[in-house]
Amino acid sequence: MPKNNDSKVLVRLEGVSKKYQSGSNEIVALSGLDLEAREGEFLSLLGPSGCGKSTALNIMGGLLKASEGIITIAGEEMTKPRRDIGMMFQQAVMFPWRTTIENVLLPIEVFGLNKKDYVAKAEELLEMVGMTEFAKSYPWQLSGGMQQRAALCRVLIHHPKLLLLDEPFGALDEFTRETMNQELLRLQSHSGSTAVLVTHNISEAVFMSDRIAVMSARPGRLIGVIDVPFERPRKPELYGRPEFTKLVVQAREMLGLA
């Protein structure tokens, strides 16, 4: 969990903007975003809807093209989706005609790698999230939380350097969501991947992150970055600590909610 400034930068965004043309109006979704994520760090993009956090994430994932600015990943300029990136969405996005394990192995198939070499890895990941007995089940036989666990295994199957998480547990209930966040943190530190999480939940951002990029809406821009110094692994007791509350208040003030 490197937090010092010397650690290597994995993702760098310089002056990244995104504009849409809506009739004769130009909508600025994201304006001049300068941001970096260091190797192994957990970075959150926090802000209200319309602040461009998902846009920024989709640009990092290569799903959207920036109107202006430069995005570099591991020193290379980003032009298209990369195999060392894994994305998770608000919905689990499981293909109903595939069993859990076949869904987990989807990236391997798309990359044209030999599935046999990854079956053991997939089984191991499923075991880590307590899904071993559901490996042969279909998504429609699983609850929403179980589907997201499988999606978590799918995003980790090819060991991506960068995890891009677009409110991955946003559709789950509060209890399942908290458990899933813990699972995510555990697996992320286990894999050593860098994670960028999009969220509008302030305490979730404080609990999960090493740093929080606070953003504002219309036009979407960066207000500031909060450093979160808490040790890892993060325990639920953290929620009760005064330092935790202090950071939540700081974020609220930056968002103009205090």
Binding site: K80, V93, V110, F111, L164
Partner: peptide, 9 residues
């Protein structure tokens, strides 16, 4: 699902 496939290149 289309976005997922796209993100996988």
């Amino acid at each position: 699902s289309v976005s997922l496939m796209q993100s996988l290149g």
